Simulated scan of single mutants.
Amino acid sequence: MWRSRIRPNLLEEVHQRLLQLIEVNQKEIIGIAEATEQEVKALQRELEQLRSETLEVIELVDRLLEEEQRARRRLAEVSSDFSRYSEADIKEAYEQAQQLQLDLLSLRSREKVLRARRDDLERTLKFLLLTKERAERLASRVAVVLDYLRKDLQELNDNWQKMLSRQDLAMKVLEAQEEERRRIAREIHDGPAQSMASVVLRVEYCLKLLTKKPEAMSKELVALQELVRGSLQEVRKIIYDLRPMALDDLGLVAALEQFLDHVRVLHQLEVEFVVMGSPRRLPGPQEAAIFRIVQEAVNNTIKHAAATRVMVKLEFVNRRLNLVVKDNGKGFVVQKVSKGPRKGFGLWSMRERAELLGSELGIFSNPGQGTVITLSVPLAGEEGENGSN
C-alpha cells in the first residue's frame, strides 16, 4: 500500500530538528557576542590604563629631555672655563649629563613599547567591536529567520498534514467505493441475477408446456409474473440505495420520508420524523449530503445500536438547516470508535460530508445512553441574500 510508506510525523520531526539546530546556533552566536562584549570591556579598561601610563611616560620623557639639555649646557659651560670650575665640577657635570641621557634612553624605549602596546590594543579593540557588532547583527537576523521559519514551517507542516489527510481521504474513498461495488455485486448476484436465471428456466419450461400441457401454462405464467415482479422490486431497491429518485424529483424532506417509511416497515423500528419551519428545496449537492448523513446515521443505529426508537428532526430556520438524529440504543465511547481498526468509517464519512457542507458534525454518545447526531448547515445562497437586505 502506497499509504504505508508515508510517515505522518516525518515533516514535524524535520521541522523540530531544524528549529532546534537554528536555536542552538543562535545561542552560540549570542554567546560569542556576550563573550566578545566582556572581552571588549576588559580590553577597554586595560587600554585606558595603558593610555594613562603612556601619557605619564611621555610627560616624563619631555621633562627629562629638558633636564638632559640643561645638563649638556652645564657640561659645555664647565668644560670651557677651567679657571672657574675644577676637575671635580667637570666630572660631576659629565656624570650628571651621562646619567640623564641613560635615563632618557630608557624612558624613550619604554615609551616606544607602551605606544606599540597601545596601538596593538586599539587594533584588537577595533576588531573585537566589529566582531561584537557582526555577532549581534547575525543574532538579530537569525532571530528574524527563526521567527519566519517557525511560521512558514508550521504552515508547511499544516499543509503536509492536510496532504496526508487528503491521502487518507482518498484511500478511504477508494475503500468505500470498493465496498460499495462488492455490496452491489452481491445484491445483484443474490437477487436480480438469480431471479433472471430462474426466469430463463421458467420460460424454457413454459415453452415445453406450450407443446405438451397447454392447460398448465396459466399457473406457470402467474408464477413467472411474480418472479419478475420480485426481481423488479430488488432492482428498484438497488437503484434507490444508489440514488433515491425522490431526492431529485421531490426534494430532501420527501426523500427522507420515503427512506424512513422503508426503515420503519423493513426493520420494525419506531421512527419519528419531525420537520420544523418552512421546508424548501436546497441545491442538489446539499440535499444529497444531508440525506446521506441521515441515511448513514440511521443505518448505524440499525446495525450497531440495538435501538427500538429513532427520531430524525429537520429544522429550517433563517439561513440554516439544523439536523438531529437521536436513538435509544446502547451507545458507545466516541473516542474509542474513532480510533478503532476501521476508525469508525461510518462516523468518518458523516464528518467528511459535514465538512463539505461547511459545518461540523456533533456526535454525542455514552454506553447505555443512546446516541445523538447533530448538524447545523449554512444554506447556500441565503447568507448573501439576507445580508444584502
Rank of each mutant, 00 (worst) to 15 (best):
I6G: 08
I6H: 14
P8I: 12
L10T: 00
E13D: 06
Q20Y: 04
V24C: 05
I29T: 02
I32C: 11
A35R: 13
Q44H: 03
Q44Y: 02
R51K: 11
E59P: 03
E67S: 08
E67A: 08
Q69D: 12
A71I: 00
R74E: 13
E77D: 14
V78E: 04
S80H: 13
S83Y: 05
R84Q: 11
E87P: 00
E87A: 04
K91L: 15
E92S: 13
Q99C: 02
Q101P: 00
L102D: 06
D103C: 02
R108E: 14
S109T: 09
S109K: 10
R110G: 04
A116P: 04
D120E: 14
D120P: 03
T124R: 11
L129W: 04
T131E: 08
R134Q: 05
R137I: 06
R137Y: 04
S140G: 15
R141L: 10
A143I: 08
V144D: 08
V145M: 05
D147E: 13
K151N: 10
L153W: 07
L153F: 10
E155P: 10
E155G: 10
W160V: 14
M163D: 03
S165L: 11
E175D: 09
Q177A: 12
E179D: 05
I184T: 05
H189E: 13
P192E: 06
A197Y: 10
R202I: 12
L209I: 06
L210D: 03
M217G: 02
S218F: 00
E220M: 00
R229M: 12
S231Y: 13
E234A: 14
I238F: 03
I239F: 14
Y240D: 15
D241C: 12
L242Q: 10
R243V: 15
P244D: 07
A246H: 09
A246V: 09
A246S: 14
V253W: 00
L256I: 06
Q258A: 15
H262T: 12
V275L: 06
G277F: 07
A289C: 01
Q295H: 15
N299S: 14
A305W: 05
R309F: 14
M311L: 09
V312C: 02
V312L: 03
K313T: 01
K313Q: 05
R320N: 08
V333A: 00
F345H: 09
G346R: 03
I363E: 01
G368I: 02
G370A: 01
I373E: 02
P378Y: 00
G381H: 01
E383Y: 13
G384E: 15
G387T: 06
S388M: 08
